[in-house]
């Protein structure tokens, strides 16, 4: 069935911010604003949360040239474009803080989404990470540490063979919202997905 091969990935390089968040990188006047700065198009329903975190390399350094994108359901588990809350885009993009490199997303707590077999997944946010040195964008998911009951029955979390690594997918409640660090390698390397 396949007649063409997917275009091979190449690293986003050190200057991905020029292309994807030019205003952040100091290039003004081309686009009025950087895409994905806000997930809100008004007042979305649901509980407002803030997700903060860092992308950390194998030496323990926070990346300052990464770009992190998230995609998630609205508070009722529906996606934008598929009957979701019109005041919620579901998609965010962060170049990281200029000095610390940390990303922050103001969003709503996602509802539960059905798995293809009908079971409900635990609330989660899909993450995609690109940067210099990352040859193929990394997919992962953020779950909520305080959703223990839903997490136990989640079709993906329940399939993780290395049980001690599940914690790398759990955002921890923190002041003002949740903390979710992404470790590219080393101790507590985040579970990345081949989806």
């Amino acid at each position: 069935m396949k007649r063409f091969n997917e275009s091979p990935s190449q690293t986003a390089g050190p200057y991905v911010h020029i292309g994807c968040t030019p205003n952040f990188s100091g290039i003004h006047g081309i686009y009025p604003e950087d895409l994905g700065t806000s997930l809100f198009k008004g007042e979305p329903k649901g509980k407002r949360i803030t997700i903060t975190g860092a992308v950390i390399d194998g030496a323990g350094n926070t990346l300052k040239d990464a770009m992190v994108e998230i995609w998630q359901a609205d508070a009722e588990g529906r996606f934008a474009g598929r009957g979701g809350d019109p005041a919620f885009t579901g998609w965010g993009r962060s170049p990281g803080d200029m000095t610390t490199g940390e990303f922050t997303f103001e969003t709503v707590k996602p509802g539960r989404v059905a798995w293809p077999d009908g079971r409900l997944q635990a609330p989660h946010v899909t993450f995609w990470i690109v940067a210099r040195g990352i040859n193929l964008g990394l997919h992962t998911r953020m779950y909520f540490a305080d959703e223990e009951a839903a997490n136990v029955e989640d079709p993906i979390l329940s399939r993780v063979e290395h049980r001690q690594r599940i914690k790398t997918l759990l955002a921890q409640p923190a002041e003002g919202g949740y903390r979710f660090d992404i470790r590219l390698q080393g101790e507590d390397e985040t579970i990345f997905f081949d989806i």
Binding site: D57, G133, I134, N135, I156, R159, E189, I191, F193
Partner: peptide, 12 residues
């Protein structure tokens, strides 16, 4: 080298 995961990605 320092930015590549060492574990295989989880497929689903």
């Amino acid at each position: 080298v320092a930015r590549s995961p060492r574990f295989a990605p989880l497929g689903f």
